[in-house]
Simulated scan of single mutants.
Amino acid sequence: MPSKYRPQIFGWFGDLDKGPYSVPLHDDRLSYANNNYCAFIRQDLNDQIFYACLSFFSIICGSVIIIGFFWLLVHHDNSKIEFIDMIVIFCFINCCLAMYYVIPKLYHNLFSRCGSPIIFNRKTGKVYVNESDFFNFKFLRHPAVFLQPKKRRIKEYDWDDLHGVIIHNMSRNALTSTVLMVCQPGTHQVIDHIMLDPIRAGAGSTFVWGWINSFMFFCDVANIDDGEYKSDQEAEFKAHRIDGQGWPEWMIEAFNATSLEALAEIKQRHNITE
């Protein structure tokens, strides 16, 4: 049975239901939570270093291949085209496509900081994201974005418009990720994607989704002291994960908004228009 969200994301494995889950967290991605909001980190520093190095090595190899192609082009006998020439051209095209894919991965891993936390406020039903603009599922990009490696996406979303799906990495390792499908209000039409929980083995990826749902539905299973920082350590959490990362001041205040009215007052005070 296909996903109910359209267009269906590549590697789709299953849709996830919203509502309280009885499964405990069993996870270390919860950084902080209090009675108003929770924050999950989505990147591990060791993974970032590994994938940044892998991407850099791939770019070096790709650059050598592309330079070699142009060298062959200059010294090639243009009077005839042989089968080997077609193979070289095919490899060149594939190398260019690979570079087009790998360069954003390098930008993403080099310029993501502090775990790229995602914030869920259960009293306003808002979700806040501050991440590298390359931390997404786009493949077709305007060439100009390659000149903006530090470009960021800072957005506020409605929890009601976010829906979880599991995607598979299509390898023998059976790794899955949880992705938030951003839909137009009241529909299943997807307009954006947010990576929630990258690359887990088997069903482990659903623990984060389950805990967040329990938290958003005020379920007791979601213990706010399960995280990296206890609920009374908000200052330490913000010093580690939030400060200096480009979060707008109004958004940081909005983390603790206790109602939509309080959120509106914060936005008005900071001259935020939607």
Rank of each mutant, 00 (worst) to 15 (best):
P20H: 04
S31C: 14
A33I: 03
S3M: 12
G14C: 05
L30P: 01
Q48A: 14
Q43K: 15
W12L: 09
D15A: 05
L25I: 08
N36T: 09
N46T: 15
G11S: 03
C38W: 01
H26C: 08
Q8N: 06
P20R: 07
C38T: 02
R6P: 03
H26W: 09
Y21G: 13
Y5R: 03
I9W: 12
V23E: 15
P7T: 08
N34L: 07
G11M: 06
N36L: 12
V23H: 13
Y32K: 08
C38V: 06
N34Y: 06
D28V: 08
R6Y: 08
Q48S: 14
G14E: 05
F13N: 10
Q43M: 14
Y21F: 14
L16H: 07
R6L: 07
C38E: 01
S3Y: 09
P24H: 09
N46S: 14
P7F: 03
D44S: 03
G14D: 05
S31H: 05
N35D: 06
L30W: 00
Y21V: 09
R42T: 04
L45V: 12
R29N: 14
L16D: 10
I41S: 06
I9T: 13
N36I: 03
R29E: 11
Y37A: 08
P20M: 06
S22K: 09
D17A: 15
I9Y: 15
Q8D: 05
P20C: 02
N46V: 13
R6T: 12
K18D: 13
P24C: 12
Q43A: 12
F10N: 07
D28H: 14
F10P: 03
D27T: 05
R6H: 08
Y37C: 03
K18S: 14
K4D: 12
D28I: 11
D44K: 02
L16M: 14
S22I: 06
Q43T: 11
D44C: 01
